Computed example of a mutant assay.
Amino acid sequence: MHTLEQAELHKLLDGCKKGNRHSQDKLYSQYYSYSMSICLRYSKDRNEAIEILNDGFFKVLTNLDKYTRGLSFKAWLRKVMINTAIDYYRRNEKHWQTVDISFAKDEGQSVDLIDAISEKEIIALIQLLPASYRIVFNLFVIEGYKHEEIAEKLNISVGTSKSNLSIARSKLKRTLATWRKENYKDHG
């Protein structure tokens, strides 16, 4: 679906603010794919991503007065979805606390396979990461947050953020190496 023009978007947002169900449905369908692509990176699977996405859209619809007209709606929406994913992580982190030192050392191998695999496969690989590593990886690598910002958002130390990123990268390298072996075993 094409991106909404500013005037059309503002009319749609005004309808949403008034509680117009048709406007809310149209906003949801217009930005579903974009929002889902964000939520998938922060979730372990599609069902979890849908839960985050729906929570995020609820926040969007109930906080439209916080969106500043003239600024990018997609950027604001992205921030809401990321913060919703962080909230989801915080609510569930007691179930995800794990210590995994088997990946703490960097393997020293640079696996550059990003061009060989699709975005969907990359997301699937990221989803394999334990939640604490996945969220730090996404915030640092994809969203561009600094470790200090991540530590503050997740209520962890800067050292933990750095460690989780290192472990996430190591796990992804190992997973990519395995993927490469499985997909290119006939190519040498």
Rank of each mutant, 00 (worst) to 15 (best):
E48K: 04
M36I: 08
S23L: 11
Y89S: 01
I50D: 11
I52W: 01
N54S: 14
D55Y: 10
Y42H: 06
L4K: 05
S110K: 14
A75T: 14
Y67R: 08
K59S: 13
N155Y: 15
A124Y: 00
F73M: 05
A116W: 10
R21Y: 11
L71T: 15
Y42E: 06
I117T: 05
L129Q: 04
E107I: 02
L40M: 12
Y133I: 04
N92P: 11
H187T: 13
A124T: 12
S23G: 09
Y32Q: 08
T160P: 00
G144T: 04
N20Y: 06
G144Q: 01
A168T: 06
A177L: 10
C16P: 02
E5D: 14
C39A: 04
W96A: 03
I117E: 02
S23T: 05
I38W: 02
K18I: 05
K66T: 13
S37C: 06
K94H: 12
D115S: 11
S118W: 08
L176F: 04
S29A: 14
K146C: 01
M36A: 06
T175C: 04
A151Y: 10
G144C: 03
I114V: 15
R69E: 04
E107N: 08
F57N: 08
Q97L: 05
K105S: 07
K94G: 12
W96E: 06
D186R: 07
Y184Q: 08
M36V: 08
S170V: 02
H22T: 13
A75N: 04
M1D: 11
E143L: 03
M36D: 05
L61G: 04
E8T: 09
L9V: 03
E93Q: 14
R169T: 00
H2K: 14
V60E: 03
T160E: 02
T3V: 05
V111R: 00
L125D: 03
I38A: 07
K146Y: 08
K105N: 07
L165P: 01
S166K: 13
L77I: 07
E51C: 11
L53C: 12
F57H: 06
R41I: 11
R21A: 15
K105Q: 05
L13Y: 00
S163P: 00
K171C: 02
H147D: 03
Q30C: 09
F137L: 12
S163L: 02
Q109F: 10
K146H: 10
A177D: 04
T178F: 07
L4D: 09
G19W: 00
S23N: 13
K146L: 06
E107A: 07
K171M: 14
S118P: 14
F103K: 14
R78I: 06
T3W: 09
I122F: 06
Y133P: 06
I52H: 04
G19L: 00
A116N: 11
L71H: 12
K105V: 02
G188Y: 08
K153R: 09
K44C: 10
K79S: 12
R180G: 09
R41L: 13
I38S: 03
E148G: 08
G144N: 03
T84Q: 02
D55A: 12
D14I: 05
Q127S: 03
N183H: 14
D55K: 12
S118V: 14
L176N: 07
A124V: 01
G56W: 01
K94T: 14
L128K: 11
T62S: 15
I150F: 03
Y88R: 07
L64H: 01
S161D: 09
E5R: 07
L176C: 10
E107G: 12
Y32L: 12
